[in-house]
Design a protein around this nucleic acid. Structure first.
Lengths: 157, 157
DNA sequence: TATTGTTATACTCTATAACTATA
DNA sequence: TATAGTTATAGAGTATAACAATA
């Protein structure tokens, strides 16, 4: 099955294929831990930003408040994180709890194994170059808030 | 919100972020045409491989027969493609029909515009390098059939 | 007014499992 | 036995739209 010139030239398509390739593998690696890639990312973000709120977590994951809520509920039910009162009376503060900290350590190992195995076709210099190019591609400084729609919510108010 | 060293080092995570960035934009660009990125990809693959079957299309898209079926149904209902008898009595042969051909031409323009705009932070040399690295990352020769599970189906039989 | 969390609901995408008909 | 298509069903993930409490 040929891709054809149009697809071959599209960076977005090539990124999708590459991402899918790695994600399938890491998802399989995480399944025994009961986590999806997104849930693992959430755990790592909470560990790195202890006390963060749900909306902020959602922004980092590029999902809206409602989706972030669902994700947080699951991680709480799994006994991996907890909600504590935040600095506002509005906001929660999210923290890993011991079981979550322990799981994260396991999970990081599995994920790193998968990641290095799946990128083994590239040597060190190539890997560095790829990371650099991806970083340059994305506005690490100004990631656009969300998938469009909380804007509607905001502007309709 | 900091990513933290673990996420920063994971190629899979960086690919996901980059992919998401471009996909959000191309999705918005395609919405007026009533197509999602995956549906556009399917159209381009059918155009490039006229007469292909549904299962083959699914493999190229990394989805199983059932999901491919659903996708094909939608494209048929939209009046963009048609099923004709294939070389077996089992297989269908998929073809674009005029409305689909016309739409593809429009769509390719929109998608290219989005793609070049979203990759504008990279110069020509960097873009080429990125394409090369992504190609090297993925086994263009031996893409593993599927997301794991038709194997179970096969081995259970 | 804007923001945080929350809830209920719905939609999209994809998978699983079973069945039919070919090969 | 293996493959192509089909169907019904279920699950994950995410969005929208509303509301309450707080800022």
């Amino acid at each position: 099955m040929r891709q054809g010139a149009d697809l071959e030239r599209l960076l977005g398509y090539q990124l999708q294929r590459a991402h899918l390739l790695l994600e399938d593998d890491v998802r399989a690696a995480l399944t025994p831990c009961g986590l999806s890639p997104a849930k693992m990312t959430a755990l790592l973000l909470i560990r790195e930003n202890p006390g963060c709120g749900q909306t902020a977590l959602g922004r980092a994951l590029s999902v809206n408040r409602s989706s972030a809520m669902k994700l947080v509920n699951i991680l709480v039910e799994l006994g991996l994180i907890e909600r504590r009162p935040g600095r506002d009376l509005r906001t929660n503060a999210l923290y890993l709890i011991p079981k979550g900290e322990k799981l994260v350590r396991e999970v990081v190992e599995r994920v790193r194994e998968s990641d290095t195995r799946m990128s083994a076709r590239l040597n060190k210099a190539e890997l560095d170059a790829l990371h650099t190019l991806l970083r340059k591609l994305g506005p690490s400084h100004g990631r656009k808030a969300k998938r469009v729609s909380e804007q509607a919510e905001a502007s309709a108010a």
